[in-house]
Amino acid sequence: MTRVLPVVLVIALVAALPLLGDNYLLRLGTMGAMYAVMALSWNVIGGFAGYPSFATAAFFGLGAYTGAILQGAGVYMPLAWVAACLAAALFAGLLGLAILHLKGHYFAIASLVVAEVLLEITTSWTSLTGGGMGLNLPILRISVDAQARLFFWAMLALASLTLAMNWIVANHRLGFGLRCIRQNEDASGMVGINTTLYKVIAFILSAVFVGGAGALYASWVFYIEPPDVFATLTSVKPIVMALLGGAGTVLGPVIGAVLFLVMEELVWRNLLEIHAAALGILIVILIFFLPGGVLGLFKRRRKPAAPSRPLASAEAGR
């Protein structure tokens, strides 16, 4: 409990952000929470289980369109969000059964291409999705300030749920099983771990909240189009964030998401032309100089004193 309390306190502090009355900060906070949801979700399949999934964009876009279409049909907004979570989870379950038997690069490519196929289908299916023209969502009849607060708190709540999910997984037999799979999948099967089931559960967990984040995002910006919500970068950014903070740890992805957001705001917004190159340089630096992420640095220093603390014990370097 002593480890959970500070985290809860921090979340409570962040939740008080609207008191400052700055809508720009609230927008940043909402983005940060959304990044945290995506990085934490990827962490379950990519960090714990070590499967290089590039499917985040697929789940995000699927959630965004599910939410947007349902809201357009008159479904109450929170219900549309829940439905988007379920749609993403169901999709991940079926997709997982189909592609999780692939290893390494093959799995990475299959997961990467899924978002591309969904992008094409969404663009072509004009009658349902509005095609390349995009989709407008119903306008909320509350003040701009109230909207900013509403979406900030909703996204923060979703991020907190995702964090709690990560913590539970890490301390549950599921997390232990997933770490075994990362280290040696064949051996895990031999000692009685149902690897298929564990991997599919991890894949579903990596999708469910991302689907919700997609729907929230759609409601937040009122307008979505296929290249926006199915962008390949949406799959890559969460990986960079998780690696930045420390993949396979619980707090690492959150720290990575916040750092990423700060860098994105400070550096890239001012240098729009080289924004992709700046991300590229960040990635190169990350791979060569920070292979265990920020928490990896921390862990190396603390290792002799505390060899087996659950929060820091995951092998962040993998």
């Binding site: 390494g104 890559v236 190159a277 991300l279 590229g280 990635i283 791979i287």
Partner: peptide, 25 residues
């Protein structure tokens, strides 16, 4: 060459980063 033995994800993300850099250039 410096990350040849690393897991699949490392080389994948590294070449992705280099691609962002070169393509932007």
């Amino acid at each position: 060459n410096r990350v040849m033995g690393a897991p699949v994800l490392t080389t994948l993300v590294l070449t992705f980063g280099l691609e962002l850099l070169l393509n932007n250039g």
